[in-house]
């Protein structure tokens, strides 16, 4: 199993948000996580990626056969975990090129490889830019600075394409995208999909799942996964909302 989360409890400022969550993801799979606002989806993503302040009070996170709880955020990233942020931040004055080269070289250094040669890197930038149909101009600008909401999301997928993670967590990458951008993002993900990697897609809308067909759909509620199903569960949620699930869970 690529990712195996066992009985995970996560607190922020002493307040428990994730309360005994289990999730297993194999290579080659796409998992969708849905659920009402404020139930802990982004918190789960933060805990997996090792963000400071998200205290794992109980449970284990296994990735590629290693318990990664003790690893720093950058070590987890370099192990191959990527997060497409719900709210990507701006880093003024730092060009996308410089940022990505630094990131890629950090990853290579972690794996004992020499820095990527400039020519090879630029070629790769070109190739991946086309993949996500990102404007050359965007890639020359500072990280997310002045990007529109949709551009920021596409830029996340561009970075994912550059860093080639084994596990990519997409936190509401589809929110705020117009239909064309949505297709571009989906196309990007689908092209990167392989037997060697896996995706966890956090979303509120079934729409994205028309383009990226998930193997499993999970409903996160009250800090736990309370229901798991196939692709059709998303359709059902779209139709019926979450009330019935809440009722089932609280009953």
């Amino acid at each position: 199993m690529l990712l195996n989360i066992k009985n995970l409890h996560v607190s922020i400022d002493g307040k428990e948000i994730i309360r005994g969550l289990n999730l297993g993801v194999n290579k080659g799979e796409v998992h969708a996580i849905m659920g009402p606002n404020g139930t802990g989806k982004s918190t789960l993503a933060a805990a997996i990626t090792g963000r400071d302040g998200y205290d794992v009070t109980e449970g284990e996170i296994w990735f590629k056969g290693k318990n990664i709880i003790e690893l720093s955020a950058e070590e987890r990233a370099n192990e191959g975990i990527f997060l497409s942020f719900q709210y990507p931040v701006e880093i003024p004055g730092v060009s996308m090129t410089n940022f990505l080269r630094t990131a890629l070289n950090a990853q290579r250094e972690y794996h004992g490889k020499p820095p990527v040669p400039a020519g090879e890197f630029l070629k790769m930038m070109e190739e991946k830019k086309n993949l996500v149909e990102i404007h050359s101009k965007l890639a020359n600008r500072s990280v997310n600075e002045g990007f529109s909401g949709g551009e920021k999301k596409k830029n996340e997928i561009f970075q994912m394409a550059m860093l080639q993670p084994t596990l990519a967590i997409l936190d509401e990458t589809d929110s705020g995208l117009d239909i064309d951008a949505l297709k571009v993002v989906a196309k990007g993900v689908n092209q990167l999909r392989s037997d060697e990697n896996a995706f966890v897609i956090i979303t509120h809308y079934q729409r994205l799942l028309d383009y990226i067909v998930p193997d499993f759909v999970h409903v996160l509620f009250d800090g736990k996964i309370v229901k798991t199903g196939g692709k059709n569960l998303a359709l059902e949620l779209e139709e019926r909302g979450y009330e019935w699930i809440k009722e089932q869970h609280l009953a």
Binding site: D52, E74, G93, A103
Partner: peptide, 20 residues
């Protein structure tokens, strides 16, 4: 954290941000 999540350690991240 954004930098860390891309594999860049905090020290390098500060260098990057400050230079920017």
């Amino acid at each position: 954290f954004y930098c860390n999540q891309r594999g860049i350690d905090t020290e390098k991240a500060i260098g990057l941000i400050v230079n920017g």
